[in-house]
Amino acid sequence: MFEAKISQGSVLKKLVEALKELVTEGNIDVSPSGMSLQAMDSSHVCLVSLVLRDDGFDHFRCDRNMPMGIHFANFSKILKCAGNDDAITLKAEDNADQLTLMFESSNQDRISDFDLKLMSIESEHLGIPDQDYSAEIKMPASEYQRIVRDLTSIGDTVLISATKEGIKFSTSGDVGTANVTLRHNTTSEKQEEHTIIDLKEPVALTFALRYLKNFSNATALAPQVKLSLTKDLPIVVEYQVGELGNIRFYLAPKIDD
């Protein structure tokens, strides 16, 4: 059987809110080492990879590896019934066709349970190699959200260029043009306000803004976001989910015709 308890249930709520616009359905794979998900959006342009480690949960037990086919809009409907301060326990029997979610209020005076129907989903699994990137940029998640939101109102695609001057986001459209440059900045006493640019070589890539904006639905999960760029490869937009794991979004670059 599978059983996982997370006392900070709001994390699970935020994770599903981060995913549900991008991914309709997917297999959450459970194993003794934790929970993971790999899923593409419907146009197969981007990939989301979620890893939640067993030791990040308050309790975790999984006797047998199994995929749990989840419809994320339905998962979200049930998680919306959990209070923000509730503890959430997930339970499933081996080869079950449903996932039980139990919500406990923080003073344990209210307990509710819901069953989510599971689906059988055929999915391909992609091997994502660990690699060095030409540029890695850490910035406040709220800053990333602001940039992609602002630029989406101006254009459809963004040129992201990382140089020793900083990281520049450029777009253009019917309205005109826009450029936002962030410089390396570690002056704040608060680490989450730092912008850290780790540049091995200059790189410039073009991406569809609507996906980058969609990734910012994960903003509530982490104070910082990390962007990783290498020529001709997908950008990685990564949010650390506390001690629990991380969520990474991969988006293929636009290539000139």
């Binding site: 197969h44 992609l126 091997g127 997908p234 991969y250 636009k254 290539i255 000139d256 015709d257």
Partner: peptide, 14 residues
């Protein structure tokens, strides 16, 4: 503008 390739073109199936 520009072409948009499928994300799966960048990674190997396992």
């Amino acid at each position: 503008g520009g072409k948009q390739r499928s994300i799966s073109a960048f990674f190997k199936q396992t």
